[in-house]
Design a protein around this nucleic acid. Structure first.
Lengths: 245, 245
DNA sequence: TGACAAATATGCGTTATGCATATATGCTAT
DNA sequence: ATAGCATATATGCATAACGCATATTTGTCA
């Protein structure tokens, strides 16, 4: 026990032996009825050559949000992305170099933007999109596999962070309209349902999904309809900006 | 923009100009149909004399959970308390001395333990329990008042953190059985309902509350009943330890 | 012009919820 | 000892939400 002494309240402030602070970002997108995330390959030790979540150290003069925006811009080439804080991981052995505490975030992008990441991934070798596997019904740990279906051991504790992010997103879908961040501006009810089903990993009842969504007040009919779909076109909706009553 | 250079990947690790890291704890308890929290009076600048959440710097060799336990033990004299991480606050101007990022937690204690804190508060002048006001229906900011009903400006951004904690607890009550952390081991259904009502700030329907709780599978009848209550005594329940199936 | 596929609408049984009412039971005052 | 009290507990019912099945509508394509 080593309390802050009243004699020197700034004891800890002057002391340089403090944990380092990072942000890590779980970037998620839905495409082809699968949930994908974006990983970057580490060039340097520790975990050189391993795939990890995009992340970086928090600078003295930037907020956590600014650090996330810098990471997304620098490492993935994205700006203006929706993200929220997920959880802060502070176990002692997360990083073999030294003590590092990481404020994890999850970010959501629509299919169009995710496509640009996929193209970027095709060009560079240091970035990849990986299909997020279902957690087993048991809620076991996520096991990531690459395009050739080889098990992929992520660096640091990032596999655990990915699992927490997916779990959080699934929970959020049940009581917030966060799904719209995974869709283009205009979308049909069935597209929205498919996104929910993809994230949740289970089929949803079409009628009650429609009723709930329309009753929620979060959706707004645009008056436009689908085109060239080979069947009766559906109404296109957009998410209503929540009035700040 | 000052990216981590591949030439020196440990650039930031070696650099001492990193944010300081603290934990702050919103300690909550229910008593007399009110929700209370525990504040400590700061002895030193900044905010000397102001009331703040108990908190402290995270040491290099302790995890976040260990830091919280140390803070609860050192500043409030409590051990073995239920707590969970709340949110990490990282705005630039939180602390006038230097950049400080705080991982906020909320902790819940039963009335018996809260009573010991209240006694301790009566003895020492550096600790107090404060009734948490309802947020208005508008969800406006919490305004803290002391026992003499004087407005109390908390130090740092702790008023905001308190508001987030109450909001989180209210949300959690709707889908998890956290309420039992605010009760003694054995309790009646009406006591549990009163706790929920106190936290949520609104009356609940007795019948559907009973039905939901009994159907949830979280409760277990102990076979014992209340004593000396001047009316028909109620069954005493305890929370069933969730099997890890 | 008709087949097709999905959108949209309607009906209905099941279940959850809110409310009202009736009965049970330990304690207390007389 | 007993009547009355306050709350626990049980039952019934109207309403709303939900899952499921079925019918109808409407662009597109062969």
């Amino acid at each position: 026990m080593n309390p802050i002494t009243p004699q020197n309240p700034n004891h800890d402030l002057d002391h340089f032996e403090r944990p380092a602070l990072t942000v890590d970002v779980v970037l998620l997108g839905v495409s082809e009825d699968s949930l994908w995330t974006v990983l970057v390959r580490r060039a340097e030790p520790p975990f050189a050559g391993k795939w990890t979540l995009p992340g970086g150290f928090v600078r003295l003069h930037e907020s956590l949000d600014e650090a996330v925006e810098r990471v997304l811009s620098t490492k993935v080439g994205l700006g203006d992305v929706f993200f929220e804080q997920l959880y802060t991981f502070g176990e002692l052995d997360r990083d073999p170099r030294t003590r590092v505490v990481s404020v994890a975030h999850y970010a959501l992008v629509d299919p169009g933007r995710f496509e640009t990441i996929a193209e970027s991934a095709a060009g560079h070798r240091g970035i990849a999109r990986i299909e997020v596997p279902w957690e087993g019904e048991t809620g076991g740990p996520v096991e990531v596999r690459d395009a050739e279906d080889r098990a992929l051991a992520l660096g640091f504790d990032h596999e655990g962070i990915l699992g927490v992010a997916v779990k959080r997103l699934r929970g959020k879908l049940n009581y917030t309209p966060v799904g719209y961040q995974l869709l283009p501006e205009r979308f049909t009810l069935l597209q929205l349902q498919r996104v929910h089903e993809t994230v949740l990993g289970r089929p949803l009842n079409k009628d009650s999904f429609r009723r709930r969504m329309l009753a929620s007040g979060d959706l707004e009919a645009t008056g436009r309809r689908q085109r060239d779909v080979g069947h009766r076109p559906a109404e296109l909706y957009r998410f209503r900006r929540r009035s700040a009553i």
